[in-house]
Design a protein around this nucleic acid. Structure first.
Ligand code: FES
Ligand code: FES
Lengths: 151, 151
DNA sequence: TAAAATAAAGATAAAAATATCTTTTATTAG
DNA sequence: CTAATAAAAGATATTTTTATCTTTATTTTA
């Protein structure tokens, strides 16, 4: 479905939205551990997210790290996909034809149309903040670590 | 969304269903041209489809080639995905967590649930034959070549 | 101002996916 | 039985993705 890059990008962004703020910036080591991703690779991805369209903000030096501006929190999830070049999922033909269109539909187009619209809706109408809030409420999980044992 | 392998697998299978039969087997060169795919790579994929679960049948030698049995035509599209190891699209977590479950949902799980169910429905309830029939009726297209000019 | 912290940038490596070419095997037609 | 045909199998190559390591630049604090 999505590339590893996109998955890490989404998980990292959600985590930063959830735990970080302008005066509590998060380090790459913390982030990678929290979302269970390879640290160096995740760092590269966060660079994309800061450069490509400012989804993520960063500062270097002591107490530096990553955080999300208020504006960034309101961005649609699609912005994250775009930053890592993965928004094809809501534009491309499911059979890999160069164009997905009503005028030259592939054999799956009719069936896929509605699904694609929902994918688009999901990625465009959902904000980063909304996912963070979803994540904040309870049992929602963002990594692969086993659940904490009850004491 | 899907890998190139899966895309070629689907397009090839649909084409074979549409144009081939037990007494009109199709050669790999024809198939690759028809679906606009790299010939040798497509050959490898068809090998998977013949070995892994008999979606496609083949015979060597003169007048040999690929075709679909009547039984194969009734298989769900998912069988093609399985043969190329790409059915994760209807099982995996959209954020790449090891498990997608109600008990440990990721932040997108609630929204993705319905979409995933529809993807599953599409790939499991649609038969190869159904796609071929869809393809047979008119303007449906399965390659990237420009439309034929009206004379 | 020096040292430490931290991300950015750049270089390299490893793995996976995609693609091509060559050799072998099965099948058919003659 | 032989030659021709076509897929299967195997080998190799290329590209892309994923991952890691090293060096540099920036920022803060002491
Ligand atoms: S043309 Fe294939 S999904 Fe639209
Ligand atoms: S847990 Fe992520 S989609 Fe179900």
């Amino acid at each position: 479905m999505l590339s590893k890059s996109a998955e890490y990008a989404l998980r990292a962004t959600i985590y930063i939205a959830l735990k970080g703020s302008e005066d509590n910036k998060l380090g790459i080591d913390e982030i990678a551990k929290a979302i269970d991703s390879p640290q160096y690779f995740t760092a590269k991805i966060l660079q994309l997210l800061t450069k490509n369209n400012g989804v993520v903000s960063s500062v270097r030096g002591p107490n530096g790290g990553f955080y999300l501006s208020d504006a960034a929190r309101k961005l649609p999830v699609r912005a994250v996909l775009e930053a890592v070049g993965e928004d094809g999922i809501i534009t491309k033909c499911v059979l890999g034809l160069k164009e997905c269109s009503e005028s030259r539909p592939c054999p799956m187009h009719d069936q896929y149309r509605a699904i694609k619209a929902q994918l688009r809706q999901m990625f465009e109408k959902t904000t980063i903040q909304a996912l963070a809030e979803e994540s904040a409420k309870g049992k929602i999980v963002i990594n692969n670590r086993p659940p904490k044992k009850k004491a």
